[in-house]
Nucleic acid binder design. Structure first.
Lengths: 328, 328
DNA sequence: CCTCATTATGCTCATTCTTAGTATAAATAT
DNA sequence: ATATTTATACTAAGAATGAGCATAATGAGG
């Protein structure tokens, strides 16, 4: 590397580290957003980055495809971090984790136990607002967070905590921003309301119930920080669907507009107005009718659509608009 | 790490790699967006990630602050890549580069040669549309890209190339999307129109002028892939200013609304309608008047503003809207 | 002092977008 | 046949946006 004379840091040996790749692999089935898990749903798939992989992305694709027997469509880097909660001083090499978001069209080996596809709302039940405000927020989460805010005596800090709660969770019925899933998880972690927070070494102020005990919020935990990585992936996807047509990779080659709508709603965790959704979709020229219709549903048969070739080719830069506003 | 029996890849030694940290460090002075460079503007600052750094971000902060003698405000991870153009088979450890975007309030050591702050439009002159469409696009870039598209005989490929050019550059006067800076750079690279493309080992189809020679587009190159990293940082920043109040970190504690507008315009590379800008800004409650005004400018004195405390505290989730549309 | 150039700021207005419907069509289940 | 379900067309109120006019407050130059 370069060595500008007065810029060079004191000669320090850049240490050897080991790279671990993590994947948040997403699929959609029957209006459920699924994520691939291992070991009874407690881990995301991960694997080492090795010499045989020319690039990181090829590394991720290689072992995900081997594990799932399925070609991986869209792959996007999520985040890289080093040594969260892992000490480096025991003679072992430090581990740097690089996480990826992957989208795939169909799930496979349904019912398998390892790997197993699970709805991500098992991990984040409060994030599903498709049929209105999740009662978990108003009834369980907000009261406990309020207690956590009250637990600090300094009025300035208390006000800051209340503000942070309000921005992330709204009031339980309004001002819900589905993109803030990661920030919500992190706040719950900080408040000691998720089980993962107990094992952590850093200072955590646990919330206590009326009997002085920790009362974890419903939602399945994962090992290490994999639930946080999952939240990062969901957040990225929820943000991205609003301006890039990522759902290409999740949909079958032909679909009805309602299927498309339900797919996006599954990702966003919110319902959309049907007529407005259709208007936006065909205004944008993302899809074209195949000419056929389906009568798999009960009512009037729906036209089938496919994504337009030109848009698929340029999906990395093509724009989308959805009747999901970017709140505040 | 976990080891699900039928999931384990063939036992492969996860190889040791070296981590290198790169920084795109941005500041604003006199309506120019500046980036910190080394070695006569040919490199971005980079340094090794070493044992003494508990986390990656602390590592970046540590040596950037040592190099610039200036506290680093906002820091955000950009991208991680391994071995772009670097062979791994010579017995040396592979290098994984992790790049960061940093924002800082004031530049320092003005006029110093190393490190030196430079306007990023020296590297991407075609990206400055603040006083209308950049003539470089219509007069230099588009003709050469058109020649590059024509150079392929297969009509399907030719149409695809034309479409990619159109999406990224528009027609030279309209449909300019300032967020696509990275995709534009990559297209110029692919077309062989930037000098960096010549040294690359991968297959590059160089564009040729009328006399059969490579005609690079104006804009200073950098070594390695640092200009690409810079483009990544600018793209991230241009996208982010539209929905998060990142400009906090770049502005002085007090400023006029015109100063704020010029700052954002410098980042976006586009001009905004003054009255509409003001309307949006005060609708959102991002700033509050300090009560004072300034008469540093020639005309009517402008009120001074500061960012509101509440918004600064929650800047990671606070929203912004600017009269810069997210085109297509 | 007067006028002009310059910047700041208030206000309007037409257009487009968005939201939240109503209405109607075409199928299935009973 | 009738109720139910789904698809699709259309509309009207309200909000947001884009473009511009009008006025205010200052310094510079005569």
């Amino acid at each position: 590397m370069h060595n500008a004379v007065d810029m060079t840091p004191p000669p320090v040996l850049s240490d050897a580290v080991t790279i671990e790749l993590n994947a948040v692999l997403v699929a959609l089935t029957e209006n459920q957003p699924l994520v691939l898990t291992l070991e009874d749903g407690t881990l995301l798939p991960s694997g080492p980055f090795a010499t045989e992989h020319p690039t990181l992305q090829i590394g991720v694709r290689a072992w995900v495809e081997r594990q799932t027997q399925h070609p991986l469509g869209y792959v996007e880097q999520l985040y890289t971090f080093a040594d969260r909660n892992r000490p480096a001083s025991d003679g072992q090499r430090r581990v740097v984790s690089i996480s990826y978001l992957g989208l795939t069209r169909e799930r496979l080996s349904a019912g398998a136990r390892d790997p197993e596809w699970r709805s991500w709302y098992r991990y984040f039940p409060w994030e599903d607002w498709r049929s209105g405000p999740s009662p978990l927020v108003a009834e369980t989460i907000l009261p406990q967070l309020a207690a956590w805010a009250d637990a600090v005596s300094d009025p300035v800090l208390q006000r800051e905590r209340r503000q942070r709660i309000e921005v992330r969770f709204g009031d339980g019925t309004e001002n819900w921003n589905e993109e803030l899933i990661l920030q919500r998880y992190e706040l719950l972690y900080e408040a000691g309301l998720v089980p993962e927070a107990r094992q952590a070494t850093d200072r955590v102020v646990p919330a206590t119930g009326t009997n002085g005990q920790l009362v974890p919020v419903p939602g399945m935990p994962m090992r290490h920080d994999h639930r946080r990585i999952l939240a990062t992936g969901i957040a990225r996807l929820r943000a991205k669907i609003k301006y890039r047509p990522v759902f290409f990779e999740l949909m079958p080659p032909e679909f009805t507009l309602l299927q498309l709508q339900r797919a996006i709603e599954a990702l966003a965790g919110r319902a959309m107005h049907k007529q407005n959704f259709r208007r936006l979709i065909d205004q944008q020229g993302l899809v074209e009718p195949t000419g056929a219709s389906t009568s798999e549903t009960r009512g009037r048969p729906a036209k089938l659509f496919r994504f337009r070739r030109e848009v698929v080719l340029e999906r990395a830069v093509a724009g989308t608009k959805l009747p999901l506003s970017r709140p505040i």
